[in-house]
């Protein structure tokens, strides 16, 4: 079972805030998912190469350029605030 602290950490990472009831509900559901994966991990996979995705398709690569830039007004419309052609966000000091 996930702890309350772990759930709070996940909330923080996902930028969501859960109230008490929802937190209990998700704690149960997330714990079930983790338990399910834990069960899968018990399967002996010795001799199999790890493959995240197996498809018969080759990746498609783009060559050259065909434009596609949007008009700036349309771009800036996507967010609540802008200034001098920039998006405007609350002051940020801590940087990743």
């Amino acid at each position: 079972m996930l702890s309350d602290d772990e759930i709070k950490h996940i909330e923080k990472l996902a930028r969501i805030r859960l109230d008490g009831n929802a937190r209990e509900k998700f704690k149960g559901q997330l714990s079930d998912i983790i338990e399910f994966v834990r069960t899968l991990q018990k399967v002996d996979t010795t001799g199999f190469e790890s493959e995240t995705r197996k498809t018969p398709f080759k990746p498609f690569l783009r060559e050259g350029r065909d434009g596609g830039e949007l008009e700036r007004d349309k771009v800036l419309e996507q967010a609540p605030e802008n200034k001098n052609g920039f998006f405007k966000v609350p002051p940020v000091i801590d940087k990743d």
Binding site: E81, K83, N84, G85, F86, F87, K88, V89, P90, P91, V92, I93
Partner: peptide
């Protein structure tokens, strides 16, 4: 970043 003001994003 403008000191004390909003941050701008490009």
């Amino acid at each position: 970043h403008e000191a004390g003001k909003d941050s701008l994003v490009d």
